[in-house]
Amino acid sequence: MTTNVISLVSIGAHPTSGRARRAEQDARAVELGLQMAGDKLQVLHAGNINEPTLRSYLGMGLPHLHVLEQPSGADALPVLGDYLREAGAQVVLTGSQAETGEGSGMLPFLLAEHLGWPLIVGLAQVESIDGGVAHVLQALPRGQRRRLKVRLPFLATVDNAAPKPRQSAYGPAQRGELAAHEVEVEEDELFTGASLQPAKPRPKRLKVIKAKSGADRMKAATAKASGGGGQVLKGVSAEEGAQAILKLLIEEGVVR
């Protein structure tokens, strides 16, 4: 039995140039979907069908991409929810956070709430799907993994621990088909009060010295700055050197 997998994709923005591209995490969601369902994978986008960047998802070898046509600023949540329920999705994959717009990463959570489905955050790998129950690996910081058991249907977000997306090729991207679906448009209320502005560089936190006396201030100013010049062990035996290294590793907690 194959699982009905749907990947949700959005339009991304390159981190340095800001130009439109396929979103990194969404592309990973497509990749994971392709690994799970192969040709049967459905890929869904809510937004403008004329966006040329959508073709870069098709370039991953998808024959179709379903587009729920919406103007920008419309709320994607209800239309996505309706589509997913009607399509009988069992596993819905999406990136953790959009690269454009607000990018709050709330969509999967709201969608899960809307559908009443469980949500897995940071899906790294689907180990097995058996009898309506999936065993999956969740990515934790520092490359660690946690095994979870979840009932179908479920939603999952993927982050950078998911498999690297395959290259988008020009040929399939040109041949693939963008299938438009007309849906009702609902205005998103967030942008009534919020405004987007170019990112300001965040100030670096200064080491604030709260000194009660001049002497304290003096002490703080002359205290050894951390990281300036390390300890160099020269002319020690290999054993002593090894002990010193091991001591540091144990202190840092990386050797247990």
Partner: peptide, 17 residues
């Protein structure tokens, strides 16, 4: 390989992107 299969090896895909 690149245009049809998307199989530029190693850093190729990244560079093209």
């Amino acid at each position: 390989l690149t245009l049809e299969r998307g199989a530029t090896p190693n850093k190729g895909a990244e560079v093209l992107e």
